[in-house]
Amino acid sequence: MKSLFNEESTTDDVLKGINLEGKRVLITGASGGIGLETARSMAAHGADILCAVRDMGKARNTMQVVRDTALMSGSCYWLVNGWRAGTTTGSAAARSA
């Protein structure tokens, strides 16, 4: 089976034509790299994004593009500090989203 994507494909290529409105997505490691790009692209396609990060300082500096994209697409955006399964912070944020 031949893949439609290769090493040069972007997240926008993969999501082209897909409407994610009404979907909520949890992305860990969202303050950089693949997590940041995934958050941006999914927000651009209408998904509501819950971004879990360990370093809020880094996230505040890098995630402006996700905030702007969510605003332009009508998506919701949440940023959660210290995500760890079972912690009060993470559990409360997931319930409120």
Rank of each mutant, 00 (worst) to 15 (best):
D55N: 13
G82P: 11
T38S: 13
Q64S: 15
N81F: 01
Y77I: 07
S96R: 14
L36M: 07
S96Q: 13
T28Q: 08
A70D: 01
T38V: 13
T69G: 02
N6V: 02
T38F: 07
A47I: 06
G17P: 08
S3D: 05
A59V: 00
V80S: 05
V65Q: 10
K23W: 00
V66Q: 03
Q64D: 11
R95Y: 08
V25T: 04
A93G: 02
M72G: 12
A39Q: 06
R95T: 09
R95C: 11
R40T: 06
N81Y: 05
S3T: 09
I27W: 03
T87W: 02
A70Y: 01
R54F: 01
L20H: 03
M63D: 01
M72S: 15
G35L: 05
K58E: 03
R84D: 04
L71H: 13
R40G: 07
V65S: 14
T69Q: 06
A70P: 07
A39D: 03
A47C: 07
S31H: 05
S96I: 04
T69L: 04
G17F: 04
K23V: 06
A85Y: 07
M72R: 14
G35M: 07
D13T: 14
K23Y: 01
G82N: 05
R60E: 02
T87P: 13
T88P: 08
S96F: 06
G82T: 04
K58V: 04
I18F: 12
W83L: 15
A30T: 02
K16I: 03
Y77F: 15
S75V: 02
S73Q: 08
M72P: 00
T87D: 08
T87N: 10
G22V: 05
C76D: 14
L50R: 02
T88D: 13
A44I: 06
D55W: 06
S41K: 11
T89G: 11
